[in-house]
């Protein structure tokens, strides 16, 4: 589920508010989006993929993390390289090559 909006990375572009297919975000104070309806999050990771400044983090569980869990802390997410890791894996962003260019389904085992 969506867990973190890193306010000091956010440029207030509203892209996450627009692209979220389940309408999780609202525009908050100063233009920084807030996670208004976390329970609606379907853990599709697409807000993260579209965020141009890697300011969002979606944790793997489909239920909210415990308050104070490490992955709710931006410093932890930056230190571990998790913040922005999906966008990088997709090859989205300036200077990157879309990973789709290299997406070749591996042959599945026959037995």
């Amino acid at each position: 589920m969506i867990e973190v909006v890193v306010a000091d990375r956010c440029i207030g572009c509203d892209v996450c508010i627009d692209v979220c297919p389940t309408d999780v975000f609202e525009r908050g104070p100063g233009g920084v989006p807030v996670i208004q309806r976390q329970g609606s999050c379907q853990t599709c990771y697409l807000c993260e993929a579209y965020c141009p400044t890697d300011a969002l983090f979606v944790a793997a569980p489909v239920e909210p993390l415990e308050p104070g869990a490490p992955q709710t802390d931006p410093a932890h997410l930056i230190a571990t390289g998790l913040l922005g890791s999906y966008r990088a894996a997709l090859g989205w962003g300036n200077g990157r090559t879309p990973t789709a260019r290299h997406a070749l389904m591996p042959p599945l085992p026959t037995s």
């Binding site: 793997a60 997406a103 070749l104």
Partner: peptide
């Protein structure tokens, strides 16, 4: 049953498959 080449291919073939594991 995924050898190293397959592991690399999976990472490129669908980048979000490994997200829940990596995270």
């Amino acid at each position: 049953k995924a050898d190293e080449a397959t592991q690399r291919a999976i990472r490129l073939d669908q980048p979000n498959f490994l997200l829940p594991f990596d995270r």
